[in-house]
Write a protein that binds this DNA or RNA. Structure first.
Lengths: 192, 192, 192, 192
DNA sequence: TATGAATGAGACTTCATTCAT
DNA sequence: TATGAATGAAGTCTCATTCAT
């Protein structure tokens, strides 16, 4: 039989893992910690996930779908893209990446160990998809005239670099650094 | 008389630690791994560094001085800053950050766990210093007229974010991604 | 439901620790040795005791209660104390100390390193209590006339010294040395 | 060639070892500690003693000669033994044992591990010699009439037990406990 | 399904010993 | 002879995983 089990508990474990892996890295995070965070006994973790590595893999790959949905929603609107819409999109991206500090760290963890984690392929695929999307926007914007002449690939790499680096550019975790600090700069990468 | 402690060996251990901490994180990296990378016996590591945490601390803080020197050299030239000089500086920064993949990963590791690593203060201090430097450039550039009107603080945050994120924006470790891919985008953050 | 922690196993570890700490001292005794003696895996020791020092602490302090009970039982009889009863008590003490060779050695180990082991306070307290008890007996005996005039404090120190030293006065571990060898001498310390 | 070397340094190491082995036991005491106490480099210890065990062996056996001399001096006087002389002798013994707290602990350490230390034979031999001496005194005293009828063997065991235990009967290391506290009790063991 | 006692691989670290200087 | 850098055996302890309950 598949996995009837309690999906609620499975989700609790997942969220606990996501949080703790992000905060402490893979090795420092223990199954016991995760169980405690999820409010269950550590033995139960193994009821829902084969082992620690399997849980980590899920924690890395599962959230990508959320990112993807974010992109696809906007992609349908490509034909009707305007500068106003781009500005809104950039704001959404910044909020999205700023809020996912934990998850970004997990991703960085995996990028840094490509041989160790095969999940990197899923990340790679997502990054390609995201850059393609940005390149489409640039081309559309240039064609429509609301963006200056640009190298789409350069913009896509630069914009992703910017988003990935935002949360690393300040060490304090106070929420003093608002989206607004970064929004103007992000738009400059589009030449606006 | 016995052989004195060899600074060469100390440096070998340091470089091995820097590389492996960056690649695998703190916990996954073992003293044995470091010793092997450095071509010595694991016991020798303890001849040169009190313990693993002390070695890590050095790996985090020692390179900062190099960064600092980089900045200070340019700072003396502030009065004679021109667009050409800024372009050269940006190119240097990009090369510098792109080459220090290992070290950047260590820094990210520490930023991500501020409670765990007190060395973060040294990082904080450096980041402040770096941003101040960028803000000076922006003000100078605006005054001299080779940069458009800008918010110096925003530029400094955005530029640091960009530099920190560059190496995370692509997962393949091929050296296909040259400085040139990022240089134009970096300059855009200055409004150029 | 899982198996609850077994008090039996806890006791096995305790006894193994008591024996081996006594025979080999603290540092020479390894957790592995203790586990082997207790017939368990070394990891299990840490299920029942936080660490080696904690186990040692228990090995030092727990048996004191047994000593105390021994004393208190007799203390209730103080009013009806006679020479016959004193002789029985001394015989009990000698048997008790002779049988606890292991434990005495642990105590000696702690006494010898007062800065290292704070448990020494519990030992101190017990020693005071024991000497007080002996002093009561001496006073009672002198009052009742079955003991000659004596300095109660001197007797109490001498008697405790004698009991502590018995097991160190012969190096062979044969059981040739019976209680009887020491009983007459112990009574002489009471002036009998 | 034998061992010309510096006898002074050899002696320094010996004294340092005696002190530290006594204070901390065998395992806890490191060669580095001993070297530091002796004011030399730890490598030099190996110039004078083959290894740690060899140094320990010397620390256990060498002082026995001093004990022996103490006894032999008195033995020559056996014919002229009197109660006065016995009292003096007992006082000397008590002082001697009270002062050698460290060394007594080393001896206890060896007694407790008879299989580990072959030096125990030297200890055994000394203990036999000492008890024989005490037995001679008892017999002489009984013959001369200044001691009551006694079992010489019992007295010798009891007296040695008392001397060995004295320093263990109080945990504080203050010098409040003078010889006098124990002298009367020691004499009681002789029936005086 | 949920629990946690039992296990042992593997990490960090200490320290006796060797040996080049 | 004196030194201390280099080494690795061995100890303590953590923690992923198994499995009986």
């Amino acid at each position: 039989m598949a996995k009837p089990k309690s999906n609620e508990k499975r989700q609790q474990i997942f969220l606990a893992g996501l949080k703790l892996f992000a905060e402490n890295g893979y090795s420092k995070t223990t199954i016991k910690d995760i169980a405690q965070e999820a409010g269950i006994s550590f033995g139960t973790v193994f009821t829902y996930y084969e082992n620690k590595a399997a849980l980590f893999r899920i924690c890395v790959t599962a959230p990508l779908q959320e990112f993807r949905n974010h992109i696809h929603d906007a992609r349908e609107d490509m034909a009707s893209m305007t500068l106003i819409k781009l500005k809104n999109l950039v704001e959404q991206h910044i909020n999205f990446f700023m809020e996912r500090e934990h998850y970004l760290r997990v991703i960085q963890y995996v990028i840094g160990q490509p041989e160790r984690f095969k999940e990197i392929e899923a990340l790679d695929e997502f990054a390609n998809e995201f850059r393609k999307f940005i390149q489409d926007i640039v081309r559309t914007g240039v064609n429509k005239g609301f963006l200056p002449e640009s190298n789409p690939e350069e913009v896509s790499y630069g914009y992703l670099a910017f988003l990935m680096g935002m949360r690393l550019s300040f060490t304090d975790h106070a929420n003093a650094h608002q989206t607004s600090t970064f929004k103007n700069q992000a738009l400059r990468l589009f030449g606006v």
